[in-house]
Design a protein around this nucleic acid. Sequence first.
RNA 1: GCCCAGGUGGUGGAAUUGGUAGACACGUUGGACUUAAAAUCCAAUGGCCAUUGCGGCCGUGCGGGUUCAAGUCCCGCCCUGGGUACCA
Length: 925
Amino acid sequence: MEYNFREIEKKWQSFWKENKTFKAENKSDKPKYYVLDMFPYPSGAGLHVGHPLGYIASDIFSRYKRLQGFNVLHPMGFDAYGLPAEQYAIQTGTHPAVTTKKNIERYKQQLSKIGFSFDWDRQVITSDPAYYKWTQWTFIQLFKHWYNNKIEKAEPISDLIKEFETSGNKNIDAATSYKDIFSAGQWKSMTEKQQQKILMEYRLAYLSDTMVNWCPGLGTVLANDEVKEGVSIRGGYAVERKLMRQWSLRITAYAKRLLEGLDNLEWSDSLKEIQRNWIGRSQGAMVKFEVKNCFISDEKVFIDVFTTRADTLFGSTFMVLAPEHELAEKITTPEQKSKVEEYISWAKNRSERERLTEVKKISGVFTGASGINPANGKEIPIWIADYVLSGYGTGAIMAVPAHDSRDYAFAKHFNIPIIQVVSGGDISEESYDAKQGKMINSGFLNGLDVKEAIPAMIKKIEEMKIGYGTINYRLRDAIFSRQRYWGEPFPIYYKDDMPYTLDEKELPLELPEVDAYLPTEKGEPPLARAKEWKTKQGYPLECNTMPGFAGSCGYYLRYMDPQNNEEYFSKQANEYWKNVDLYIGGIEHATGHLIYSRFWNKFLFDLGLTSKDEPFKKLINQGMIQGRSNFVYRIKGTNTFVSFNLKDKYEYTPIHVDVNIVDNDILNIDLFKSWRPEFADAEFIFEDGKYICGSEVEKMSKSLYNVQNPDDLIEKYGADTLRMYEMFLGPLTDSKPWDTHGIEGVFRFIKKFWRLFHNSNNDFEISDEKPNNKELKILHKTIKKIKEDVERFSFNTAVSSFMICVNELSELKCNKREILNELTILISSYAPHIAEELWHKMGHDESIAYAKFPVLNEEYLKENTVVYPVSFNGKMRFKVELDVNMSKEEIEKTVLNHENSQRWISGKTPKKVIIVPKKIINIVI
RNA sequence: GCCCAGGUGGUGGAAUUGGUAGACACGUUGGACUUAAAAUCCAAUGGCCAUUGCGGCCGUGCGGGUUCAAGUCCCGCCCUGGGUACCA
């Protein structure tokens, strides 16, 4: 029989489906192994060859682990909420659920053709009410908990209320924005609304007026990780800062644990580094500066600043507030009022993008007020400038122009004095920012080294009770509201303008129908259009929905127990599966999903629901598969196209051409003419009778006509070939261009593998003869290599080893059962369909998926002789085969007397002979 | 600017611990089989020189260094990709 992959692959895919071959049980005597892929957003475009790369790798690993005797959890699902389906709904009126369902079906169909060993019974879809019930449930728990810094753990709000009732808040050390101190008596005398307002500042999910990234193009706010360089990552729309009442998650409470947890994870250094930078820990001090002669309701006014350079306090010659700072207008003197107001409104109306691109432009305004430098009692001016960000630290700084380049530029521009306090550099030219040198002009600090001066100054600040040493994080709370339709509704209603959670029994709160997917005329989010969007008691429900990342925060937990209607997941299921052993996905989630998930998991851990503090033990980022675009060159002003190597004689315009009408860079003229009407009459300047196209490596994208679709390749070569080729392309973690021609080589290999089992008439024929040592050696060499390679995720070299093995066995015309049986198991995780087919032909009844991974016998690898490369002064000159047991002395003697050596020694006495057993011989002349 | 990866034939890449640089493929060239094509098989294939044969020199971004030996380690530089960007 010919190798008929279409028939074989269809046959085994339905076999696996019917027999539920890959169903994972929550109870097993086997050790568990959890392999997870980042689940896809089902877009309308379908999969291209880049998408399955990670899935193939994780599938190979899952199948390998099954062969090794593990109970493997390898699920798949869909991250189904997202902007594209909603944008499409706005344009066409099609409900996003309809689009999403259709796209999921398409994705599933495409995925099923690749032969993945997913347990589809565990599929989760984030937009399914049975799933998002638990997203909403977790939100309620976040609302009902606060973070206790003393024990670094989330605790129930009810416990916090008890504490307020007995002792007020003086003993509480919480992650909160609330600064005032109240007593138990004061607490009790508050109205419910006042109490709720205070509690809101402690909750891990809280509602507040915050500066948000408002994206008018998308009609919604965005989280920090959804914005890059002042524009939205999805769609590239401009983003501006806006004060809005929004839900946020107090992820900053977990900053320390999120940072420290990284140390024990098997993630790539670069990914950990991205997260470390995003969390951005800085050690420093909080210092209080008094505002001179300034009183608000009889109390002195102080400005808190955060600094990492407490040592330079004596050099602080002015202060700067962010334009959004709450004191900015309050401390401004009447004379400066109009200027300050003008500046603040100018700064507010600047888009984020303008602000970023005009970083070099210095702007600011003097408030007229002065602060007092607590180190030396000197009066220093207070300015407002937008180089100070409201979101970091306290939104106010002590400026030290001598030792901070930004302050320096500002001081030079506005003629503010500069006092050097650390020796080194030339401050008439530029600031001296290095943390190196001796202190000068700094009172009691003089003569100390910077490294000594920092703690000395912090100690002094603490003694003076004007501040304290502290750690500041760059990480911000996650803004959790979106003014969109297609997302999880919040389980929240409003009473007296204060938010309350729905009862857990009322979950899921299902997404209502609306007449249009647009904001109302009053500018409320789309949910405000829903009829009866209120509780049974008549209280209005929240109209915002949750962000795109909400559903992916805990999906890996739900896979453990996906049909559970009583709980998110059972304790028993979680204690069995624990956390993800191997997670494969793109690096683009470094500052989004991968931080949010860790936070979500840590919170559930604090509640005692998850058994592990970290969700993803080992994580691999697969590289991107880039497209290889082809170009034709049209001579300017004509409809004539010039072949690649002749183009420089003309003035031309390169035009992307569909890679599917180009074969090996040679353009198919007929297909090109019929590709687009404007090319129907095209003329050509050929070279060697052919039209050669240019090529370039770019992103794989529809608009660049370089998309390779897995379905087409499967149709042509089969899924086994596609799987192996995607792995053969290069290291999993590297980005690499797709080259369709390479797939032929893998296809040839698969056919060659098939021929090992078939005679010249294409009939299945294997021999029961005992294999010889040569054959056993080939097999065991391959077992060893495949095992090593898969365990270090080096799938490309594993594929080459299979090629070498099959080449060698073909050469020996080996069709012996003992060899082929083992080789089939080895290859089954890479090319499961052909392996399953041959496995059954060899007489097995059970699926190969649960066969036993071949055991390596080192005996077969033993050699009697070693071929030594003989080098002279490090240059390899010839090889010599020697007995493996020869002593170094014997080797030296033999090699020096070897006829080929004489030429290189040429009568001289070798200075030194280096012999590394079984490796190399080097003779130094 | 700062931080992190990386730079090897015409192409994708291999070299796992400092020990034969270029495995395995693609492509190219020549050949076999065939009426022909496809498929398959064989041979050559880093560059330069030599070629009747043996062979020789150079070569892992560039310049230094350590070592018997460097793609691999160290120092300096260049380039590419990613992250981040007034983070006090």
